[in-house]
Design a protein around this nucleic acid. Structure first.
Lengths: 108, 108
DNA sequence: TCGTTGTTCAACCATATGGTTGAATATGGC
DNA sequence: GCCATATTCAACCATATGGTTGAACAACGA
């Protein structure tokens, strides 16, 4: 279900290392070693983070020679974005004020 | 920093109970008891979830009589949304194809 | 075939998370 | 003042998470 996918997606995004790896992948495919390089962390640790991203469906890994190349998969990000859009009206300036008033005055 | 706020925001969103509570709050202010009602969970448990949402800045609590009323705060949701927008081009149909090709062909 | 490179696996550790229960606190009504 | 209501606090438990290390595996180069 979408609910469980959102659990995994948001959990995967709740870590700066993983968000950074996604940012790297936005520039194109990269190997595990390349993705791990910026972080003061063992390769095994970085590989685990990629595992989280992969299980959440945010990244695809394929083997090329002895490298494992990773590629961004955007569909789940789109799904998370659609979920967040539900609240767009709350942060849209003019409507935000209105919603606050609605909440306060209990006008339904 | 925005990075740490994103950690807290995405972590808070990575739980179906908390997302459900936010959905309830979209309809207006509600007490802890009201927010807890739909869930097969102790009140203390629900209160902890609200604590997570509050520390993440997604919810504001104020005391009214013996009730603690909660209200949605949308700014952090907007921040998360802006972050996700970075990848919009990857899931936009026509550009998605292009990006995949760019990644595969290593055209920079 | 042997060593090197790239990556994963397995075991382990510390801390965080999601939940419980029972007691404590604060407010309102009688 | 006393009892009921609304909520939090504190202690506890099981499991998940983020990290480590050392060994294993797979592929390339000589």
């Amino acid at each position: 279900m979408v609910e469980q996918r959102l659990d995994a997606t948001f959990a995967a995004l709740a870590d700066p290392t993983r968000r950074g790896m996604l940012a790297s992948l936005a520039k194109g495919e990269a190997s595990v070693g390349e993705l791990a390089a910026p972080y003061a962390m063992s390769l095994a640790g970085a590989s685990k983070h990629l595992g989280v991203l992969e299980r959440a469906g945010l990244v695809e890994r394929r083997r090329v020679g002895r490298q494992h190349l990773c590629r961004l998969k955007a569909e789940r990000l789109a799904e998370a974005d659609r979920w967040l859009k539900q609240w767009e009206r709350f942060w849209t300036a003019s409507l935000d004020r209105l919603e606050v008033l609605l909440a306060e005055e209990k006008i339904t």
